[in-house]
Design a protein around this nucleic acid. Structure first.
Lengths: 174, 174
DNA sequence: TCCTATGTTTAGAAAGTTCTAAACGTTCGC
DNA sequence: GCGAACGTTTAGAACTTTCTAAACATAGGA
């Protein structure tokens, strides 16, 4: 690996660190992913720990997290007891998975909370009609409607293969 | 305000706290927003500090952050020196703004980094052809393409008014 | 059955974030 | 101008997160 390759690798590690950090993953997850992404051969825990100058325990935990999000795959190298890892390079697959497991769940939770509050408000109003309660109901309905729409939107985004075409079509038209 | 109204208000504050926290804002921003969203009249710093049992300084900082993201508006009450605040209730406007200022910027940054790395790789290859460099170029190109698509997608999402219609149409069709 | 090479867990250190109380600066009524 | 009523800033406390080094567990080869 030439000096310049090293520079490039480090540049990507830094960029990926920033990205994952921004999206609520750990920075080290990004750096590990960047490292693996530019590696033409799978790497071991020790190699990664060495490359990033962090402890093996830290690598272990973060690589497992990356695996959990399907951003990294384990590779078996015959005749070697070590575990080897390589990057999942299908970004659409990754995005789809994250969207499903994380954002979708969060929308559902929010929707649930608000719907429950609405139910409570309706009951409160039945027992005792006040302007305050009427106001709350109105606002909560609006919020519920919004979250429902966002939820549907997330659902649509999960069919990303199609979207790659559709969206770009839309974008050009503008 | 009845006992139940208080319950509802607190429920929404909790839910909003979770949501904003998930999306990378502070939890208190969410709680403040929830409080204002269910308030039929604008509130002052002290009222908010009191409702959330947090210091006025903390409210000051977080309300300013909410203002920065256009989630809260200042209201002038004639004859009162205090500042009053109320929630922006147009969620689409909020989302659009956040998307533009935050996610879009992050995509642009990522795109920039990767493009730069690609340029560097190309130069490295000119000077010294290696399999490693060729591999890096290939992967970086793929990544650049992906980020570009995501970037365009974010651009499309910013025309959310239209999307509310288009998307839901798509979603139903499925 | 040991011993060694390996991945995982953990306890506490280090770093980072967020909160409060108090000091500060500003504005307005007098 | 002076004092009171504000909003803002800040220094440090409290809390949270992340990291490391070391202990631990496991599995394979001798």
């Amino acid at each position: 690996m030439s000096a310049s390759d090293k520079e490039i690798r480090e540049g990507l590690m830094e960029a990926m660190g920033r990205i994952t950090s921004f999206w609520g993953f750990s920075k080290i997850m990004g750096q590990l992913y960047g490292l693996l992404y530019l590696s033409s051969n799978p790497l071991t825990l020790d190699e990664m720990a060495d490359s990033l100058s962090i402890s093996k325990g830290n690598v272990s935990i973060n690589v497992r997290a990356l695996e959990r999000w399907n951003m990294v795959k384990t590779v078996w190298v015959k005749g070697d007891r070590k575990d080897y890892y390589e990057a999942e390079t299908d970004f659409w697959k990754i995005v789809k998975g994250v969207l499903r497991e994380r954002e979708k769940k969060e929308f559902d939770l929010a929707l649930n909370s608000v719907s429950n509050l609405l139910k409570k408000s309706a009951e409160a109003q039945k027992a005792n009609k006040t302007a305050e309660t009427a106001f709350a109901i109105e606002r909560l309905k609006k919020l519920e409607d919004f979250i429902q729409t966002m939820d549907k939107l997330a659902g649509v985004l999960m069919t990303l293969e199609d979207l790659k075409r559709n969206f770009l079509g839309l974008a050009k038209k503008k």
